[in-house]
Design a protein around this nucleic acid. Structure first.
Lengths: 219, 219
DNA sequence: GCCCGGATCACCCGCGCGGGGGAGGAGGCG
DNA sequence: CGCCTCCTCCCCCGCGCGGGTGATCCGGGC
């Protein structure tokens, strides 16, 4: 499996994009390289799966945004086949939050549409060798812990209440919190009661559970 | 910044490895490419930082296992400089759990020592363009949810105690737990007391905190 | 056989906690 | 100026909780 222009056996590529013009453009770029060979094109996820099954390419360049079956789902289906190809996902925005889904589906890498032609050529070669190719934003997204998007939707907590909840989330008693924040115990009790009411918690233990689950406090 | 052999301006590389022979070998591999140029070598993390500061290379190939300052720490220091180079970490085993640490430190990619020469050349070109290069195992490691390796080290919990702790972690009262497990409240109290003692918790709230932090219960 | 750990249930005591209600001061807004 | 939110502090009451101690039963190990 050569990764430099030594056409002992060219890397066979299938392009998947719902825009015929984009497909042809990409095909021209890749076919200009002697070690790359575009063997097929598909304009839809389902079409792509059938094509891959028949042609058995080494790499599939897959657009995420497609009608009917999208790129993520198509990636899953393609990789479910025996001896599956590598999938290089092509996306428009780096901030696209589909990166995690695509990687979980088994994609080998990402390529931004604003990439230059040589970058795309090299990306295909890279994933063909079994390496994974990401852009730095994707790596950062992966490093960032899974944020619960299910934030608390009820009444918002005041700064003081958040502060108290954070300490409750450390397992502190009201007296300890009072000492920590230099407050009267009664004040802390008021804040805690307020937090419980806003979170819909029965006691501080439930408040801690909710706080951890919704990401209101850091572990 | 060409990523194909067009030496308009070669990619300047610094090699960091505590083994002089390995350094020279890698240098020969990279210098054979017209678009790559090894401008310096370091055998130690501290040395590497100084060298990078002086030479301002485009890419640093960094071994993880080094005496004194290891590759991870060295990566942090190197990237703290203004206009830092890309860092390609070289490691022996894919199962190495330093991948997350290295990426968090800002490394652009990984290369296995068992990679072939052409793969290394291409890896350097890839990270030079700003892309991130990983091996699939690393991606899987990133996708895997952060498991607290810091498990509880004290006395182990009995199955029943784990069960009770799980329900305590749902915010249930002793009476509710008793109803759920079809037990007497007193029995639940005994189990809870046992859990508190084993976890070193003062009350059920602290137990919940510890349970969440150590991964004893799932959110 | 005996002993040990797990699971089950029981009683008493002290206290932190949560609910309810009240109250005053600081600061923002129309 | 009133009106509001937020922060602060106070009292009373009931109860769930945790500590301490003890009991019974069962299964397993030496």
């Amino acid at each position: 499996m050569p990764d430099v222009p030594v056409p002992g056996r060219p890397v066979r590529v299938v392009l998947v994009d719902d825009e015929p013009l984009v497909r042809r453009g990409l095909a021209l770029i890749l076919d200009a390289e002697p070690d790359l060979e575009v063997v097929g094109e598909a304009g839809d996820g389902a079409e792509a799966v059938a094509l891959v099954r028949r042609l058995r390419p080494d790499v599939v360049c897959m657009d995420v945004r497609m009608p009917e079956v999208d790129g993520i789902r198509a990636t899953e289906l393609v990789l479910r086949q025996p001896a599956p190809p590598k999938v290089l996902v092509i996306t428009t925005f780096a901030s696209d939050d589909h990166v995690v889904d695509a990687l979980a589906a088994g994609a080998s890498g990402f390529l931004l549409k604003r990439a230059r032609a040589e970058e795309m050529v090299q990306a295909v070669r890279t994933v063909a060798t079994g390496q994974s190719l990401l852009f730095p934003e994707a790596v950062r997204a992966l490093l960032r812990p899974r944020r619960r998007t299910a934030r608390h939707d009820g009444p918002p907590l005041t700064p003081r209440e958040q502060q108290v909840l954070a300490l409750v989330g450390q397992g502190m008693t009201n007296a300890e919190i009072a000492a920590e924040l230099v407050l009267g115990v009664e004040t802390v009790r008021t804040h805690v009661a307020s937090v419980l009411a806003k979170l819909g918690a029965r006691d501080r233990t439930q408040a801690v559970v909710i706080a951890y689950r919704t990401g209101l406090v850091e572990p």
